[in-house]
Amino acid sequence: MAGPAALAVVAVLLPAAVARVLRRLLRTSLLLSLPIAISALLINLFFFPGGATLLFSLGPVHASAEGLAFATEVLARILTISGAITLFYLTTPASELVLDLEHRGVSPRIAFVALASVQTVPAMVERAATITAAQRARGLDTEGSLWRRLRGVVPLAGPMLLGSIADVEERSMALEARGFTRPGRRTLLWWPPDSGRQRLARWLLVAAVPSLIVARAAGWLEWLG
């Protein structure tokens, strides 16, 4: 428990506070990890093998203190991981990341695919909402029981898929017409500035990975739990 918690404070919460995204980070990462966190909590609390200290019983299942301790540790890890991912998302504009990658020699096509995939998500969500509204207007029941909702997915999937394919075809033609398939390097008008302190921080992080692996293997980090 102490290890993941310390990591969360040092690597996630403090940087988020410095970047002034702490509140958004907490809200987003909690929402992201809530489903898996609840399931991990319930499973470990009630079904932890070797749970000897009874806390309470719910019908045929029994919550143990050992299960609660393990569940807490798992939760801390899940929240740390989701927090780290959310922190990256909140502090790194995708367009800047891709420009930087391209500046460092990554193929523009790979960079484009990476960025376009991210940017396409809001458009897909908007399209799904439009199709859902259109299908509802024609009497499709997309609310109510789980079975009704599942049945409602079928008429949405067709238009969603076909519309996306048509969009991809038109988008690829538009890209070709704008010289995207030209061999050779593109001109970049700008790329994110990279300071000496940022470079130093990156190298320290890279160096920290093997150091931590060695320390863990040697048993020097047992005190973290």
Partner: peptide, 15 residues
């Protein structure tokens, strides 16, 4: 060449 849908003609990668 320009097409009907303005959104699909934008690169999607420009801020």
């Amino acid at each position: 060449i320009a097409f009907a849908s303005a959104a699909t003609q934008l690169s999607g990668v420009s801020g």
